[in-house]
Every structure is written in C-alpha cells, then in structure tokens.
C-alpha cells in the first residue's frame, strides 16, 4: 500500500505528486516575494519626493549575474533533457555547470555586498538599502538552498538513477522548476534595484 503517483502521473490530472507540490510551493513563494515587491512600491511611493536613492549599484555586475543565472536555468533544462534521454553522465556534467553558475552568482553578490559595506551602506542606512539587502538576501538564500539540493543530486542523490531513473529524472525536473523561479525573481529584482 504505497502512496500512488509518486512517479507516474495520475491519469485525470496528468501530473505526478511532487510536481503539484512544487507548483503550490512556488505559488506561495510568489506571494512571499510579491509582498516584498509591494512593500517596495509602497515605501517608494510614500517617500518624500526626490529622496529615493537611485543608481546606487554597479549595473554591469548585476547584468553579469542576470546572464549567469539565465545560463544556469538553461543548463538545468539540459541536465533534465539528458536524463530523459538516459545519459546520466552528461546530465551530471550539466548539473555541475549549474552549480558553478550559482557559485559565480554568489561570489559576485558577495563582492557587491562587501563593496557596499565598505562604503558604509548597511540595511539600516536607508529604506532603499533595507529593501536591497532584504530582497537580495532572501533571494541569495534561495540560491543557496537550490545549490544544496543540486549538490545532493549531483553527488549522493544520483545513486537513485540506478534504482529508479524515472523518479530521479522527476526530482531534477522539480528542483529545476524551483531554480527557474529563483531565476525569475532575479529578473524582476535586477531592473527594480539596479535600473529604476
């Protein structure tokens, strides 16, 4: 008496459990970041005219990070596609590339933080910086979580491929969805914090 549809989709819904689970989870994440974006709008709209800080960040760095994250989203898809085609070795390679991209993203982000701190910009400095550090911090936390899971599936978790390849493939798909979401959040954050 095992729980059904952990691997195969249920015929009438066309989805397997974890996929519904991750979509629901992402819906809640949308609300989480949505609330923070709304706070941004409300605080910015309520600020004394002309006092809101703009052009504080290094756009090239932000841009590079955007590219890096988008690239990592693509490589996840490659990893998953390779699993579908039964090529675990290449899939693991792409997972590694994804992890590397995440690492690059975090390194650049840390450098930016370091740079801001050395210029005495802290969360307490101003509402703009408070939002900047909260939003990017929360986002970076998501990146780290995603990477931990990727590392697990690249390493010890990959042994599941031998026993239950379909389930393993599904897992990569599910983390992939999460990773795309993290990517998408950044695509909103970048213009909001760097450009506007």
């Amino acid at each position: 008496m095992d729980i059904p549809y952990t691997v195969k989709p249920r015929p009438d819904t066309g989805l397997y459990n974890a996929k519904i689970g991750i979509w629901l989870f992402l819906a809640s994440e949308v609300m989480l970041f949505g609330a923070l974006f709304s706070s941004y709008i409300m605080l910015r709209a309520g600020a004394e005219p002309g006092t809101w800080l703009t052009n504080q960040l290094q756009v090239p760095l932000g841009f590079i990070n955007t590219v890096v994250l988008i690239a990592s989203s693509v490589t996840v898809v490659y990893a998953w596609a390779n699993l579908k085609m039964g090529n675990i070795a290449r899939a693991r390679f792409f997972l590694l590339v994804t992890i590397a991209c995440g690492l690059v993203f975090l390194l650049i982000k840390s450098y930016e933080y370091y740079h801001k701190f050395s210029h005495h910009h802290y969360p307490s400095t101003d509402p703009y910086w408070a939002l900047y550090f909260t939003l990017t911090g929360l986002h970076a936390f998501h990146v780290i979580c995603g990477m931990v899971v990727f590392v697990y599936f690249w390493g010890p978790g990959a042994s599941m491929w031998k026993t239950d390849p379909e389930r393993y493939t599904n897992r990569i798909e599910v983390v992939g969805l999460f990773w795309h979401f993290v990517d998408l959040v950044w695509i909103f954050l970048f213009p909001l914090l760097y450009l506007l």
């Binding site: 819906a27 809640s28 994440e29 609300m31 989480l32 970041f33 949505g34 609330a35 923070l36 706070s39």
Partner: peptide, 8 residues
C-alpha cells in the same frame, strides 16, 4: 497564499 506576506 495568505501566510507568505506575513512571513515577509
């Protein structure tokens, strides 16, 4: 859907 904003 309602709890995440409070989390934020």
């Amino acid at each position: 859907l309602a709890f995440p904003p409070l989390e934020a």
